[in-house]
């Protein structure tokens, strides 16, 4: 910085360094600390992609089984292949990007970045929301209406939200364990990304098996499910500080879903 600019300032920046006393000598390590260090053994450290692999694999078992055991949606043969590709790509990207943002630290970092996680999660939710609003395909005569099953549209939405919750619960539980002690701050942002990823996986599963194809159903049932999963993730991760509370809540949700 030029001298002229320095003169324009009301104070010299260096005064802050002097004022804060950063170079004061620290106390020696305490006896407790030294005792803990003396007895230490080598530890196996984390890898950048370890948590992603564990959470991803554990979470994908449920959707894969559901896909194998549940019949494909009735209008599947009538859906344009381009739409199927786009839907799978967008929901899949929302899942992958959110999960990576929640679990993988940037190169050179130890922790996942909370701000990046929340940004990616919001973008993912926005993306699937826009796709649902603008590009939902209804095959006349083939797509099912809730009334055909004796459900109201609201009940149909609740059913799909329940499906998303069942998929999300596994991601959230395993994710909580994988991120244990890893997100001392910004936990709610990371949890939001984890929840959004879990919700997006539920939404991706519904692309294949949900027989209701109206825009209102997809927005209110599927996208709302993603939003709720993200909210649940944010709240649960915020409670991670009191770990027992988080686990108790997860068990309650799991019992409720069951």
């Amino acid at each position: 910085m030029s001298d002229g600019k320095d003169k324009d300032k009301d104070f010299d920046d260096r005064v802050l360094g002097q004022a804060t006393g950063v170079d004061a000598p620290p106390p020696a390590p305490s006896a407790d600390l030294l005792r803990a260090v003396e007895g230490m053994k080598p530890v196996r450290t984390r890898t950048r992609f370890g948590a992603l692999a564990v959470v991803g694999l554990a979470g994908l078992v449920g959707p894969a089984l559901a896909l194998l055991r549940t019949p494909m949606r009735r209008d599947w043969p009538g859906l344009p292949i381009g739409w199927i590709t786009a839907a799978v790509t967008i929901w899949g990207l929302a899942f992958a990007a959110s999960l990576v943002a929640a679990l993988v630290p940037r190169r050179g970092d130890v922790l996942p970045a909370p701000s990046r996680a929340s940004r990616v999660a919001l973008a993912a939710i926005g993306g699937v929301g826009l796709f649902a609003l603008l590009a939902t395909v209804d095959v006349p005569g083939m797509s099912m209406q809730p009334a055909e099953r004796g459900w109201t549209p609201f009940e149909a939405c609740l059913h799909c939200i329940g499906t998303i919750a069942k998929v999300a619960i596994v991601f959230l539980i395993v994710g909580q364990v994988a991120l244990r002690r890893l997100v001392p701050v910004g936990g709610s942002r990371v949890g939001m990304a984890l929840g959004a990823a879990a919700g997006a996986m539920g939404g991706l599963l519904l692309v294949f098996i949900c027989p209701f194809a109206s825009t209102s159903h997809v927005v209110l049932g599927h996208v709302t499910g993603v939003v709720l999963a993200a909210l649940a993730g944010a709240i649960l991760m915020r409670l991670t500080a009191s770990y027992a509370v988080a686990l108790a809540l997860l068990v309650l949700i799991a019992v409720g879903c069951g």
Binding site: S30, L33, R46, T47, R48, D109, L111
Partner: peptide, 26 residues
């Protein structure tokens, strides 16, 4: 002291090669 004790307990969370300074600040 508590911070370094926590760092000691959480050292298995460290990713080899990463910059530990922001992590310890956190």
């Amino acid at each position: 002291q508590l911070t370094f004790l926590k760092v000691h307990e959480a050292r298995s969370s460290y990713v080899i090669g990463a910059n530990p300074i922001p992590w310890i600040y956190t």
